[in-house]
């Protein structure tokens, strides 16, 4: 392909600048590619907010509102118990309740989940299974409080909110380690 010499120079300069900027900027551009293709549209704040439901373990993304175990129990019995059992501790594959000292193999919130924020995030995005995304933030806070209470992690009277939830230390967190498999002649 014939490329104008000025374009070549420009590309080379861009590339060198890109390489120099490697530590502070993103990545060097691809030779022969424009800096931007210009495809796609800038997302507006409203568009981002309407989709952004993620919650980080430090609580970033948690909405306003609050809830407690008593209110959560009522919602749980109405919308969750049909799959997870009346108490959440029934021996089903969907079991939610068990403490570290219980001798059950099922992974539950009490014996396996490392972050309390995940409980809120997952209920809000994916539950109930037959009506995902249908719960209000207050309902999700209440259900989260109920399940944490049932797993002996918080007190029954705690009014859970965006400040308190990320500060809860989960029992199983101490067990988590990062993957250290690296290939090579080693079985891990």
């Amino acid at each position: 392909m014939f490329i104008k010499r000025t374009n070549c120079y420009r590309a080379a300069v861009v590339m060198v600048l890109g390489m120099l900027a490697c530590h502070t900027n993103t990545r060097p551009p691809v030779p022969g590619w424009p800096e931007h293709f210009g495809f796609g549209k800038t997302a507006t704040r409203r568009q981002i907010d309407s989709l952004n439901i993620s919650i980080a373990p430090d609580g970033k993304g948690l909405p306003a509102g609050s809830g407690n175990a008593a209110a959560g129990r009522v919602i749980y019995l109405a919308k969750c118990a049909s799959c997870h059992g009346e108490t959440g501790a029934e021996p089903t594959p969907n079991r939610l309740v068990a403490t570290l000292s219980d001798t059950v193999r099922t992974k539950t919130i009490g014996n396996y989940w490392p972050y309390a924020t995940t409980v809120f995030d997952y209920i809000r995005r994916a539950m109930p299974f037959n009506a995902p995304g249908s719960l209000t933030n207050e309902e999700v806070y209440s259900l989260t409080a109920f399940l944490l209470y049932r797993n002996n992690i918080i007190d029954s009277t705690l009014q859970l909110d965006a400040v308190k939830l990320p500060n809860i230390v989960m029992p199983a967190k101490k067990y988590y380690v990062n993957d250290d498999r690296r290939g090579g002649n080693e079985i891990k």
Partner: peptide, 21 residues
């Protein structure tokens, strides 16, 4: 983000009660 799938789901228990993530 410590989502459900990368904490409570697609992790595996290994020696000494550790959970590999």
């Amino acid at each position: 983000f410590m989502t459900r799938e990368e904490t409570s789901k697609y992790t595996e228990t290994i020696r000494d009660h550790k959970i590999r993530q």
